[in-house]
């Protein structure tokens, strides 16, 4: 439950927004009042336009995010297991990590077109590294003393990986997963702004071209809300599945 002070800050922001446009201090065209935006939001919901764009964006995020997990986790585990592989490939990955995914957009458009593959591609690019680094870091930081316990019981390498290393890397993996989810939203909207025919990012640019700042703001609000909701859902899932992690969840909000 949000606390009273949290609620007060939200209300104050809303009030300042309202005053800024109601007093004529900012032109209502540049900053439509909260009420206008709210009404626009209702209109968009009733007409089904919003739902259509939200669904398109959601589908892209979910598929890109899952694909990134499916790639990043095994690669990170492989890297942790093999020192030669690490020293050979990690410098290249470090280089790639420095490139903002949006800078890859022109190439991705040429390679994958402007369809779904390109959107999913940009999401995978943007959330691969947080997840990869979370898994790598978690595995690298495993307490050798816990591994001793497994060795005493005669565990095989696989058993040590599955029963000791991965569980103890989980807090760091979870942080990577949460940061990755945040990144994937950002990258998606960026991709939809540049080249798209549906999705929340597209809805915003389209509204900008029609000079509908109220729709732009409504879209921004929805994007923020969806990000919050998805992070909450992920946390709730983790809290239910991995109870011992509950207190670690509050760190690393992304």
């Amino acid at each position: 439950m949000p606390r009273l002070s949290t609620l007060a800050v939200l209300l104050a922001t809303l009030a300042a927004w309202h005053l800024a446009s109601a007093s004529g201090w900012v032109s209502p065209f540049l900053l439509p009042s909260p009420r206008t935006v709210f009404e626009t939001l209702i209109d968009l919901s009733v007409s089904g336009v919003l739902a259509k764009h939200v669904l398109v964006s959601l589908r892209r995020v979910v598929s890109g995010y899952l694909l990134a997990i499916a790639l990043a986790v095994p690669v990170a585990v492989l890297f942790s297991l093999s020192r030669p592989l690490r020293s050979m490939v990690e410098p290249l990955l470090e280089f790639l990590r420095q490139i903002p995914p949006l800078a890859m957009m022109p190439l991705l458009i040429l390679w994958l077109g402007i369809g779904e593959a390109q959107k999913v591609g940009i999401i995978v690019l943007s959330c691969f590294f947080p997840i990869f680094l979370g898994v790598r870091g978690g595995i690298a930081a495993v307490d050798r003393k816990l591994i001793d316990v497994g060795t005493v019981y005669g565990f095989s390498r696989t058993e040590i990986m599955l029963r000791i290393v991965l569980p103890s890397a989980l807090p760091s993996i979870v942080v990577g997963l949460r940061i990755g989810l945040g990144y994937s939203w950002r990258a998606l909207v960026g991709a939809e702004l540049i080249a798209s025919s549906a999705g929340l990012g597209y809805m915003i640019v389209d509204a900008e071209n029609l000079a509908r700042t109220d729709i732009v703001l409504a879209g921004i609000l929805v994007i923020g809300l969806l990000g919050l909701v998805s992070d909450h859902l992920l946390r709730a899932l983790i809290r239910r599945k991995v109870r011992w992690l509950a207190e670690d969840l509050e760190m690393a909000r992304a």
Partner: peptide, 27 residues
């Protein structure tokens, strides 16, 4: 069979006490 007790308890933080005791038994 060999059992070892270290200076620190070295319990798996993700398992409860019972789970930790059963840790080496399950398989």
């Amino acid at each position: 069979r060999t059992g070892v007790v270290f200076q620190e308890a070295r319990l798996m933080p993700w398992l409860d006490a019972l789970g930790n005791v059963a840790f080496g038994l399950r398989r």
